[in-house]
Write a protein that binds this DNA or RNA. Structure first.
Lengths: 339, 339
DNA sequence: GTGAAAGCGCTAACAT
DNA sequence: ATGTTAGCGCTTTCAC
């Protein structure tokens, strides 16, 4: 029935083939295939083209189209660590979905934080005529912008540059810290500790600021002795246990889920129950941890998917970038059973 | 100094521009830029071209090259769930690195397991003239091959099709199960339990087969009463605790890390110490869990990175596909402190 | 309404 | 040793 030559063998079907079968010119085929507005095509010709397209299994060559139009539908995503964490995957996912929605496709490159690989990756994307580049890191931080990025439209995802020289989208750490604290407050706690990381970062300062502002808003005076420094890992949380206990806090906001995980261990060793004896709130919503601790951990989610999606929107100019500073994406609370 | 017009503004520099500045023809430029073997170019001309390239900031247009050569350097990666798990990220990472190594770039698409999205994704890749497609799932299973995949070279990653109709690369579940058991054996255990999943899957049968074969090789008779069914999650492991304890096993191989995590909780409630009272082995090497449990969990790694890399190698024909059945990738042991 | 033709940036014969 | 030219598959302006 079909003389289709698409597929693994035979030379690919081109517009010319379709034109020949339909008995029209390639221009006409182009017009009907692209549903060109304002192209007056006779009903008959249109039908013949459509039939020929189906019969031959014609598939437009997106590359030729790009070349001819001078404008591609590629978006490049350069990540320093696609895999080190589940998080990066979410950024890709969000970026991909959003790009897709607007007819764009994602070109991804991993650089493992290596500068040479980074430059190579960017060069390659530029050679492929990407519309723009999303440059992302796997945790929120300030970066040095690679020189090559200035050669195309770029938006920073989960990172930002000094002087706000490039549009950026990052999680709203302060709001996140505030939200976490508010949840504890809403559960009736007044003496709330905060185990903060010892690592300088936007997360360190932002979450602390959020914690303070929530307390203030609730009319509770900030008590420096209630914030405990800890390595941002399980060990840190575990190690902070006794100091925390001495503070007589009834609830604790942990800098991240891993810290909370360590705290769980420490608390358990002291025979304390969560949340009856002490309520705990995490941060990050690291699924494998938070959803599987016992009791499951209430936390605040890092909006990686949204970060990727918003990055694409900014890049495509679908959304205006804030006048100054990065665009902040909210970190929503995820309530489970530790409060 | 430089009249460079690359970058955000100005029309892009083409080969013609370079030719003009260097005072040669585009053919010559093409030859030196691509380091064409057997193209005899005078030292002088070569130098002038190279200088012009730098001066103008010339960057080849990969799309035009593809169009003209008829052969692209894109590899498509269609995944059912880029983000649901840290794992998928590793597949992308491995595929990306390997593709890169051979001068290819990765086009990724997420389908969320939705058939329409899947077809659209494949169509889009075909339109972009991908060299071939990697079709991957986030856990090892048998799939129905989407019709459209037959239109190009495809290799299945972390999944396989009935009748071995497409080349595939999957983890070697049986070897993994054997390895896990062998580690327990090597630690001196003779009475080894196995908490297996209740979900039918290659993992269920493969790991069990590996467990049996390791026991046999050690001269230990397989004892059906030592294999316990459990939901493949934390709850399953927790629930299996008492039955396990009654069995008097001194070591236990868990179907996956989450089950092990639940078992940890159960064991702790019974006042048992790991590994002194009972040794536990996981499977999957789900980082966030395995590396952060107390004690850290010994396990067997699912080779996702390798799966992605091997998929690319198969696709590019760098490695022959096995005559029958999928290519098996070894699951290496990751020893920590639970044994 | 439809077609001819130029051109997107590059490669690859083929000339010279 | 280097230049000329004809495409690659498509879009688009302009004629008819």
């Amino acid at each position: 029935m079909s003389t289709s030559e698409h597929g693994r063998n035979g030379s690919p079907v081109t517009m010319r083939d379709v034109a020949k079968v339909a008995g029209v010119s390639v221009a006409t085929v182009s017009h009907v295939v692209n549903d060109k507005a304002g192209a007056r095509i006779g009903d008959d010709a249109r039908r013949r083209v459509q039939e020929a397209v189906i019969e031959l299994g014609y598939r437009p060559n997106a590359l030729a189209k790009t070349l001819s139009q001078g404008t591609s539908r590629f978006i490049g995503l350069v990540a320093d660590a696609i895999a080190t964490t589940p998080f990066a995957g979410q950024i890709i996912h969000g970026a991909q979905d959003e790009a897709w929605k607007h007819g764009y496709v994602l070109l991804v490159a991993n650089t493992d934080g290596n500068e040479a690989a980074e430059n190579e990756a960017i060069a390659m994307m530029l050679e492929h005529q990407v519309h723009g580049i999303l440059y992302s890191t796997w945790y929120h931080r300030e970066i040095q912008v690679p020189e090559a990025l200035h050669q195309t439209d770029t938006v920073l995802v989960d990172c930002f540059a000094a002087g706000n020289v490039l549009p950026a989208v990052v999680p709203d750490e302060e709001q996140g810290g505030r939200t976490a604290t508010e949840e504890l407050l809403a559960a009736g706690h007044r003496r709330i500790a905060f185990i903060n990381t010892t690592t300088p970062s936007p997360a360190q300062t932002g979450r602390l600021a959020g914690y303070r502002s929530a307390l203030e808003a609730a009319g509770i005076e900030f008590d420096e002795s209630l914030v405990f420094p800890a390595a941002p890992e399980q060990e840190g949380g575990y190690a902070a246990t006794s100091a925390l206990l001495e503070s007589k806090a009834t609830a604790v906001f942990c800098h991240n889920d891993r810290v909370a995980m360590g705290l769980y261990d420490g608390l358990r060793e002291h025979g304390l129950r969560i949340p009856e004896d002490i309520a705990v709130m995490g941060f990050d919503n690291q699924d494998v941890i938070a959803a599987h601790l016992r009791p499951t951990l209430s936390t605040v989610a890092l909006p990686h998917y949204e970060l990727g999606a918003a990055g694409v929107r900014l890049l495509l100019g679908l959304e205006p970038a804030p006048e100054s500073g990065p665009q902040l994406i909210a970190c929503p609370p995820v309530l489970r059973h530790s409060i």
